[in-house]
Design a protein around this nucleic acid. Structure first.
Lengths: 191, 191
DNA sequence: TTGACATGAGACAGATCTGTCTGTATCTTT
DNA sequence: AAAGATACAGACAGATCTGTCTCATGTCAA
């Protein structure tokens, strides 16, 4: 039997859609309350402040990002290099989806530039955490300079996220994945 | 003789520093008026709305970006390939400066996600204009697929700007420039 | 049935920001 | 010197957003 979605889950689902599609600052509490069909008091019982809701939203994206990394590990348990390649293709595919609106972490950091702000801090921690896991994957691949490659891939990946968001119509997933493979091969051939 | 800085110039200079360092939305009009030591009425005479000031700020960055491209052309008038390489090194150098806070265009687009908003529109147009000039440079370099390379470089360049902003302490200019050269060489060797 | 408690609808307070307006001082030009 | 334009300081209005509070309604268990 399908158990009913709780108020808190409904709020977070609605907030996730609105925050991601329209931006965190652009979406007010009233809008979320209206669309999740919940009372204001009920909302504030689940999330004492808007920041708390934003943190939950970012945590959701952190879990999803880690799930992709985990999927890559399961698909290619024998080769970290294949895991990396799979991850890049998986990312490229996600970025080319119509609903893709960039990286929630980067967008939130830019929307809340103040160092130490709860939203800024959570977004930065999430970004760093996810990337640390990817970097450890590069470490296992037995490359000449895994940190250097990981850093190059982070730049490329971050930029692809921005291009796929800002210049959506021009984004081609193969352009990203072939660039990623080119960087990987570049270091393989150099080493 | 040094002619005195006009009120409008002073406002724009102060606004540029504050908008770039702390974000456009985070900086209020009152703050700019205070720090540029001008009256509110004088401010609104020079810039009828805050959006007008933001547009002027973005125009400033557009001119600066184009100046870098122009410099590359002057330094290596004979080889578009060398122009590209020079530009990448020049960009890397700028990104490693302590005052670097990312790409004004991307940051503004993320801060104003609403399509058609004057600030969003101007930032997008500026970004696209600057990049069209860089892409034409790639076209002249006689590469097998200049559009593909330009697109890859745009991703890398955009991501490097974000990393240099968000993960400032970890950013190394050589990591970016070597990745850019790797992408260029990757296509040169493939062709 | 009834009482305890959660929920819905929405008014309200407080903060913050943009942009207008008023009154005074200063500067330029004739 | 006089007059008109310009600049300054700051009050004020209007909009917007977050978060609190009130009160009516519904739900579930004893």
């Amino acid at each position: 039997m399908e158990k009913k979605e709780s108020a808190k889950e409904r709020i977070l689902r609605v907030a996730n859609e609105l925050f991601y599609q329209e931006g965190v600052r652009a979406v007010g509490i009233d809008r979320i309350i209206l669309e999740s069909e919940v009372a204001k008091a009920s909302f504030y019982r689940s999330f004492p402040t808007k920041d708390d809701l934003v943190v939950a939203y970012l945590e959701l994206h952190r879990m999803r990002s880690l799930a992709h990394v985990e999927e890559a590990r399961e698909r290619h348990p024998e080769s970290a290099l294949d895991q990396l390649r799979f991850l890049m293709r998986r990312i490229a595919e996600r970025m080319s989806r119509p609903s893709y609106r960039g990286c929630a972490f980067m967008n939130t950091i830019v929307e809340f530039p103040e160092i130490g702000h709860p939203c800024h801090r959570k977004a930065l921690e999430s970004r760093n955490h996810v990337w640390a896991v990817v970097e450890s994957m590069a470490q296992e691949a037995g490359l000449p300079d895994p940190r250097e490659l990981a850093e190059q891939l982070r730049m490329l990946w971050s930029g692809a996220a921005m291009v796929a968001y800002i210049n959506k119509s021009e984004f081609k997933p193969e352009t990203f994945s072939s660039a990623a493979l080119s960087l990987i091969d570049g270091q393989l051939n150099a080493g």
